[in-house]
Nucleic acid binder design. Structure first.
Lengths: 211, 211
DNA sequence: GTCTATAGAAGGATAGAC
DNA sequence: GTCTATCCTTCTATAGAC
């Protein structure tokens, strides 16, 4: 079977990869077509040949990255397992993912906040609006046991997301107070350690929550 | 006594305020001098008369905003109180602050990540590198009682920061999964509710932490 | 101090040769 | 498909009148 990616010409693919790096690094407004061409090792005119405008090139990159992030987040919570098991797997896998894609969260956060319409496609297409209910209904018994009502789900979900995403997004700012964060080896060790810390922290808070 | 701010000419001050808004909204790369002039209700040339270059105008704005954020964060932890009391006050005050300045965190996070040198001034000037030790030493007995070692402080501090900052920074992205976040009234109610949720969550996790 | 007009550089996009 | 050369708009910055 021929994979879809193999059908894409190698030049187009080189451009796409270069654009991904440059946009992630500098954002839409800060990225330059010349910079993308340089990184792809080709001429600026070729960018326009394949993607017509900066806008269209950006859109192509952005939607792949947005999907990449959300697929990672959502796939785990759609499996068959207890909430507690999912929490652990989510933190394990999401932190590994974030270590490999450290610039992704801040990039997405920014671009969406500068242009909320960017998220519209995903929102409608995949009916993500229903996710809170879906997760709650699957685990209502377990969650009720922790004293979590359906109306508490946003608080809980954002807390769990923040446990893994925030350190990566805020790394450079946190480094002002904790200079060791500037060292990537130390930071990655911190993130590894965070898998256990976060899982323990959340589960302890849930199990002992007053109902 | 004459306040420092009253010494600044009103035109310069109008420019500064307009620049603050535009930079916070669009970031350095996305901001336009013309846009700032328009918002200040003056001519573009006046920007250059008062601040010479876009870069210098940005620097002036950025450093005020960075200080604003850090002062808010740090002031509370420098007071005389138990760690538990400080945690509550921090969440209360920081969340109020963030509701009033919702664009600030993402702006700072982005600009620093695009140009880490921006943080250098603050880092050295205020010796923020020592904060982790300072906070721990003041509360070592209480924190040890929760099973928190000095080496756990980064995990704990980033968790607490993330509890208040992450929802604001990630609001538009979270809104993909939870559309109610798009409604500012509802979002602010969510943040109000978060004061209690976060304080309870963190304290429950700490008090029941296995040592 | 404030404005109008404009210089000058940078960046996105296209024409046209190969 | 890929390149060089160039157009045209946008943006920062300055000159100079008032």
């Amino acid at each position: 079977m021929v994979k879809k990616k193999e059908l894409i010409g190698q030049t187009q693919s080189k451009i796409f990869d270069a654009a991904t790096e440059v946009f992630e690094e500098k954002g839409y407004a800060g990225a330059r077509m010349q910079g993308i061409a340089d990184r792809a090792g080709i001429n600026k005119a070729l960018l326009h040949y394949y993607f017509r405008t900066k806008d269209q090139l950006f859109m192509a990159v952005f939607h792949v990255l947005l999907k990449k992030m959300f697929d990672k987040i959502l796939s785990i919570f759609m499996e068959e397992a207890t909430f507690k098991e999912k929490l652990r797997r989510f933190l394990d896998e999401n932190i590994d993912f974030l270590i490999k894609n450290p610039k992704l969260p801040l990039f997405l956060l920014n671009e969406i906040s500068h242009n909320p319409a960017l998220a519209e496609g995903l929102k409608e297409k995949l009916q993500y609006g229903q996710i809170r209910d879906l997760i709650y209904d699957r685990h209502s018994k377990e969650l009720k046991g922790y004293g979590i009502k359906k109306s508490d789900m946003p608080q809980l979900m954002i807390t769990i997301m923040g446990m893994s995403v925030f350190p990566v997004a805020a790394r450079d700012m946190m480094a002002i107070m904790m200079p060791q964060m500037n060292d990537t080896r130390k930071f990655n060790a911190f993130m590894q350690e965070r898998k256990e810390f976060a899982a323990g922290f959340v589960m302890t808070a849930l199990k002992n929550r007053k109902k």
